[in-house]
Simulated assay, not measured.
Amino acid sequence: MTLFKKALFSFSIVSSAIVIYDLLPLDHKYLAVTDVNSQSTESIERVLPGEQFILSHMLNANGTLRTNLKSNKTTDPQTAVGHDALSESMGLWLQYAYEKGDLTLFRKNAEVIKNSFMKSDGWIAWKVNPNGKPVTTNALVDDLRITYDLYSAGTKWEDADFKKTADTITRSILKRQYVNNTFRDFYDYSKEWPSNVITIAYLDAFSIVNLYEQSKITEDAYQKTKKFMINLPLNNGFYPFNYHVNEGTYEYHDQVNLLDQLFVEYSTAKFGQKDSEFWSFLKKSFQDDSILYGKYDITTKKRAVEFESPSVYGLAILCALEHNDSEFAKDLYYRMIRFQTLNPTSEYYGGYMNYQPVDTHIFDNLVPLLAERKLYNARILQ
């Protein structure tokens, strides 16, 4: 079972939409509004259009984030659609609130996670359906990200409750998903067993470094994980998708999902690998085509699909920031926002919409929003 394989939400930009966007006056392509309601202890400069869209269109009644704008349904327990809520989304939303400096938004959603996703012992369901019923498995990367957010917020706002919750989740991770010196994808709470696979993109370096700095994992555990990531064997310049622990083997996909690759790149860069073959490929591909496609052929390195994804650009921006490449980050940003509805009169202002059909995926809104906020925090955008 692979919980990380959430399909890219493909976007086709019709020529009329491009024309409308290009005709908008420059000062209407980005509309900043003052946040008058926040109780944050930090000074919040602006509410970004993407945040406005999420607050207006992507919230369920219980405060969780819906996966899609439309309320589609599925009988596949391993798929999230419609108004299903994901721990992945909540972790990214927390991260955005932290980067924004919005304590009220952060605290509200930390409570949502505790009430809707988390058991008292710190285990977090990766999905909760619209009726509030959670699945019986979790996802390591989501739990790690949430602990990172909570520890960071606990330090920033000197909030002991945030750190206490992070400690509870961390204990669950280390008890259930760190087996024989290796992190595992998930833990099935009903069957009481962990996966014997680790999806490489699940090893979020920012969270793991933080756990080490918080003295939650040992020096040995930290160094082994870091070494594992830095020494990943490449296939034609691409990272493996996952590692089968019992067999000691890596798995590669014939069609490489760029999101998976970028998550790994983000972590290896954090661990100190700044000159990877994959990053060189990515930059050259964008230089040659002015586009990043959703998937590439592992053998030919040519695009395997025709679609782009705003979340790919958002994650590439985060990688560029980690590589201290502000010019590349800006180039990626201006390509990314071509997919955003920036007409302030539109019902879907701020959203990364697919207008055929009229729908969107929360991931394709959260990652670009987080990237944009980080660009402002870095003063790359003014």
Rank of each mutant, 00 (worst) to 15 (best):
263 F>R: 09
194 P>G: 05
184 R>F: 01
182 T>V: 02
200 I>K: 04
270 K>C: 00
142 D>G: 14
310 P>W: 10
23 L>W: 00
111 E>I: 06
165 T>M: 12
224 K>F: 00
73 K>A: 08
264 V>T: 15
13 I>L: 15
147 T>G: 08
33 V>T: 13
174 L>G: 14
7 A>F: 08
265 E>K: 13
71 S>M: 14
355 Y>T: 15
64 T>F: 04
194 P>H: 02
87 S>E: 02
233 P>H: 08
336 M>Y: 06
27 D>Q: 13
167 D>A: 12
123 W>E: 01
323 H>P: 00
253 H>E: 13
133 K>C: 06
125 A>Q: 03
32 A>T: 03
311 S>Q: 08
294 G>E: 07
9 F>V: 03
186 F>T: 05
340 Q>C: 06
280 S>D: 11
344 P>V: 11
115 N>K: 10
171 R>H: 14
55 L>I: 04
352 Y>T: 00
34 T>W: 10
57 H>A: 00
120 S>E: 15
212 Y>W: 15
363 F>Q: 04
201 A>K: 07
272 G>T: 11
347 E>D: 12
251 E>N: 09
211 L>I: 12
73 K>Y: 04
207 S>C: 13
149 D>G: 08
314 G>T: 08
316 A>E: 03
294 G>A: 13
201 A>N: 11
119 K>G: 00
135 V>M: 10
149 D>F: 07
314 G>R: 05
215 S>K: 15
187 Y>P: 09
78 Q>Y: 13
237 G>H: 02
342 L>H: 05
150 L>Q: 02
19 V>K: 03
136 T>W: 01
171 R>T: 09
356 Q>H: 11
178 Y>Q: 12
59 L>E: 12
181 N>W: 06
352 Y>C: 01
18 I>L: 13
253 H>T: 09
349 Y>Q: 06
113 I>E: 02
106 F>R: 01
325 D>A: 02
314 G>L: 05
198 I>D: 05
330 K>H: 06
231 N>E: 14
229 M>G: 00
161 D>C: 00
95 Q>R: 14
59 L>D: 08
50 G>H: 10
147 T>K: 04
194 P>A: 11
51 E>N: 01
98 Y>V: 15
350 G>Y: 13
381 L>H: 07
341 T>E: 14
336 M>G: 09
95 Q>A: 15
328 F>P: 04
79 T>L: 09
331 D>H: 06
53 F>S: 01
292 L>A: 14
139 A>S: 13
5 K>M: 11
354 N>K: 08
123 W>R: 01
86 L>N: 07
170 T>G: 06
60 N>H: 12
111 E>R: 09
287 Q>C: 05
230 I>L: 15
176 R>M: 07
195 S>Q: 02
206 F>G: 12
2 T>Y: 14
159 D>N: 13
116 S>L: 02
295 K>W: 11
239 Y>E: 07
215 S>F: 15
108 K>P: 06
355 Y>E: 05
258 L>G: 02
148 Y>G: 12
8 L>P: 10
195 S>K: 01
201 A>P: 07
282 L>T: 09
263 F>C: 03
